[in-house]
Amino acid sequence: MRIRRLTGAEIDVWRRVAETVTPRPGSLLPAAPETAPETLPAPVKAPHPAPPAPVRSYTAASYVAPVSVPKPPPVGLERRYKRRVADGRIPVEAVLDLHGMTQSQAHSALHRFLLGAQRDGARLVIVVTGKGVKERGRWDAAEPGVLRRAVPFWLRDARLREIVVGFEEAALGHGGAGALYVRLRRPSTTL
């Protein structure tokens, strides 16, 4: 791609426009053309020039720090990624088993586990929730276990968005409906 140079007439028009504004410190106008064009009309002056904009100064009291943009909520894993995990081509780096814990124990254990796994550089972990309580000799599909219902809500919590990219039910070889693949963000580096 070739950049074309301004013609003498274009430079003259630009100079006329530039003379009507206050230049920034350190900015230069283009050099004047050797010959002035004869066909350009005279510039039209505005009847009432607009008043200059007031200079805005910031004091410590009026300054508002920029707000950090929250991370998006976790989403499910891509089909191809999940297939590669199930086949063993992407390794699972840590496992947390929540069997036998109360909700409060499981919630704090999950939070500690995810923070530690992210700090250690893990990208994919499994959280085993279990399928629920067995009633009358069969699994009650209508009422899954308390932790199986609660953990997805905890993973969507705004406090874990800095850690969790996405999660989805694990493949049968990794626990099926009683476990979740959890994909973690890279730890943020602050200087």
Rank of each mutant, 00 (worst) to 15 (best):
A9G: 08
A9S: 09
A9M: 06
E10M: 02
I11N: 05
R16T: 11
R16L: 05
R16S: 05
E19F: 08
P23H: 02
P25K: 07
P25Q: 04
G26Y: 12
G26F: 09
S27Q: 11
S27N: 05
L29N: 07
E34Y: 01
T35N: 03
A36W: 06
T39W: 14
A42V: 11
A42R: 11
K45D: 11
P47V: 08
P47D: 07
H48R: 15
P49L: 14
A50N: 06
A50K: 08
P51N: 04
P52C: 02
V55G: 04
R56M: 12
Y58F: 15
T59Q: 10
A60Q: 10
Y63H: 15
Y63V: 15
P66L: 13
V67H: 09
V69D: 13
P73E: 12
P74V: 12
V75D: 11
V75G: 08
L77D: 13
L77V: 13
E78R: 13
R79W: 04
Y81R: 15
R83Y: 06
R84G: 08
R84H: 14
G88H: 13
V92T: 09
V92E: 03
E93S: 11
E93Y: 02
A94Y: 01
V95F: 03
V95G: 01
D97W: 07
D97Y: 06
L98A: 07
H99W: 09
H99A: 10
G100M: 08
T102F: 09
S104A: 14
S104N: 13
Q105R: 15
H107T: 15
S108Y: 13
A109H: 02
L110M: 12
H111N: 12
R112V: 07
F113I: 00
L114I: 14
A117P: 03
A117V: 03
Q118W: 04
R123I: 00
L124E: 05
L124Q: 07
V125H: 04
I126C: 14
I126D: 01
G130H: 01
G130N: 01
K131F: 01
K131T: 05
V133A: 04
E135R: 12
G137C: 07
W139V: 09
D140M: 03
D140H: 02
A142M: 03
P144F: 00
G145S: 03
R148S: 01
R148P: 00
R148W: 00
R148E: 03
A150H: 01
P152S: 04
